[in-house]
């Protein structure tokens, strides 16, 4: 086994890939964020961000909406994933859940415009019962609805995988030993499926922080997140440095979320060692 002597060789393509397409771009963003339009080093961009109430409010907004989207998806997805594991043709149902992700996001957004609009399907249905047109487009509710719909598959899949991996004997044992349904869920099912929930949360919360297309198409720019600001700084005012600063702050926020949600087992292990 000659390969054993050069295990590093296999890594070369991946290392190159990571260096050029992950590390370098992030370094570039960080560099931009610490310079001004004349390429002088400065902290001004960060000062602007933290001294300006608008940006802080926008960050809070982003966090709040990302939180709501994640919460709504979790509440819908966890039971769905659980019942999925009880079904007979699981692969078929899974396929149905994955199917919408094959359709382009923009198309889905436009489809929702048709559904939620003043003369859309929902309002036509309501009018059958004599209910006047309800305004759903360009509302917070509409925005949350569409964002949740789009994210659901990304939450169901990891949770389903986690629950499927649980040995059914454990659940049976819990029930046999007299645990109530709630206790079984709380002390057996939930801890064992937690890894799936965590990766689902990461997969949804983090991209939701910087949504900007949906905020305009469905939210009508009445929901403003940091993504909107980044788009504006790069595309309209051409102040790439400030845009990069917001980008860096988003990255930091995302790292915080990762730290808060992930790696619980590792903590446990470390405790044993110490």
């Amino acid at each position: 086994m000659k390969n054993k002597r050069h295990p590093g060789l296999f890594a070369i393509p991946y290392v190159l890939w990571i260096a050029f397409f992950v590390i370098l771009p992030i370094l570039l963003i960080v560099w931009y964020s610490f310079t001004n339009t004349n390429q002088h080093l400065t902290l001004q961009n960060y000062h602007t961000f933290f001294a300006n109430g608008t940006f802080l409010r926008m960050s809070l907004n982003s966090f709040w909406y990302a939180f709501l989207i994640t919460l709504a998806t979790l509440l819908i997805s966890y039971p769905a994933a659980y019942f999925l594991t009880k079904l007979k043709k699981q692969q078929f149902w899974l396929l149905l859940i994955i199917l919408p992700t094959w359709i382009n996001l923009l198309l889905k957004a436009y489809a929702f415009i048709g559904i939620l609009g003043r003369q859309g399907l929902v309002n036509q249905f309501l009018q059958l019962f004599g209910l006047g047109p309800v305004n759903m487009l360009f509302t917070n509710f509409g925005f949350l609805l569409v964002a949740t719909y789009i994210e659901i598959p990304f939450m169901i899949l990891p949770i389903y995988n986690a629950i499927v991996a649980i040995d059914p004997a454990l659940i049976q044992a819990s029930e046999d030993l007299g645990a109530s349904k709630w206790q079984t869920f709380r002390f057996v099912l939930w801890p064992l499926s937690r890894a799936g929930v965590e990766s689902g949360i990461q997969a949804i919360f983090i991209p939701s922080l910087s949504l900007f297309m949906l905020t305009r198409l469905i939210g009508g720019n009445r929901v403003i997140t940091l993504g909107t600001a980044i788009e504006e700084y790069f595309m309209t005012t051409m102040n790439w440095n400030m845009g990069a600063t917001i980008g860096v702050i988003l990255i930091v926020m995302m790292i915080l979320v990762m730290l808060l949600t992930g790696n619980k087992p590792a903590h446990g292990r470390r405790m044993h060692h110490e």
């Binding site: 415009i113 609009g117 003043r118 003369q119 487009l137 360009f138 305009r216 198409l217 009508g220 720019n221 009445r222």
Partner: peptide
Amino acid sequence: IKAIISDELKMYMIQNE
């Protein structure tokens, strides 16, 4: 204000939104 949008404005006005 109902919404602040770009190209979609055309479509919405045509659809009596």
